[in-house]
């Protein structure tokens, strides 16, 4: 079963609902090491994305993800706006005018998105950011892209969850939390956490079909 625009929209709706449910948890994580705005910002941004999606019909990934990117970049304050915005924009550019793609194509486009995030944030694996969730997840997704689809989606979400948890002992090297130095150790990164939610919602859109 290919990944299509309908599934992409379903994943964004699930992501909005999950962010709404977890906004206080995200804010608490951010309060420990950042400026306590990640939950609120993501919540406001995803709500606005859903309003946008409700007002339009989307025929291809390019139009969908461009709208998501621009909305997120204008509404989500803090670094999450430009970072998630760049991820969605690169995803849209790579998938371009397709209406549906294979797991391998989707994974390849996500790699472009991740490259964009790393280039914008000048970040690498181990810096205690969303990259620590995205990088191992996308690698697992690509490595499993030729096998059964369900296995690929599960590998994707499982690696994302592990990547998120792996940020707990890390020392923050990017963003506001890096100003905390060693006090950032022992806390799960809020950006890595919201990135796990995004991936679990993408998997959710696959399993509900």
């Amino acid at each position: 079963m290919p990944f299509d625009v309908k599934m992409a929209i379903s994943a964004l709706r699930q992501f909005n609902a999950l962010i709404e449910e977890k906004k206080e948890f995200l804010t608490d994580l951010d309060a420990a090491i950042g400026d306590a705005d990640h939950g609120i910002n993501m919540n406001r941004g995803m709500k606005r994305v859903i309003e946008k999606l409700n007002s339009k019909e989307y025929a291809d990934f390019s139009a969908l993800y461009l709208d998501v990117a621009m909305t997120v970049m204008s509404v989500v304050g803090g670094s999450a706006g430009p970072l998630y915005g760049t991820f969605f924009m690169k995803l849209g550019q790579k998938l371009s005018e397709s209406e549906e793609v294979s797991v391998g194509e989707l994974a390849g486009a996500m790699q472009e998105g991740l490259n964009g995030v790393m280039s914008l944030g000048k970040s690498a694996v181990g810096d205690k950011t969303m990259v620590d969730t995205l990088a191992p997840a996308i690698k697992a997704f690509r490595d499993n892209a030729d096998g059964p689809e369900e296995d690929a989606w599960n590998a994707f979400a499982n690696a994302a969850e592990q990547g998120m948890k792996d940020t707990i002992p890390m020392l923050a090297r990017r963003g506001r939390s890096s100003y905390q130095g060693e006090r950032s150790i022992g806390h799960q990164d809020p950006g890595a956490t919201s990135a796990f939610y995004l991936i679990s919602c993408l998997r959710g859109a696959f399993t509900e079909r």
């Binding site: 970049m73 304050g77 803090g78 670094s79 706006g81 430009p82 970072l83 915005g85 760049t86 914008l120 944030g121 963003g175 506001r176």
Partner: peptide, 13 residues
């Protein structure tokens, strides 16, 4: 500082 830098980079991109 911070996200102003990231946002500026994103705008240039």
């Amino acid at each position: 500082l911070g996200s102003s830098v990231l946002s500026s980079r994103a705008a240039v991109a």
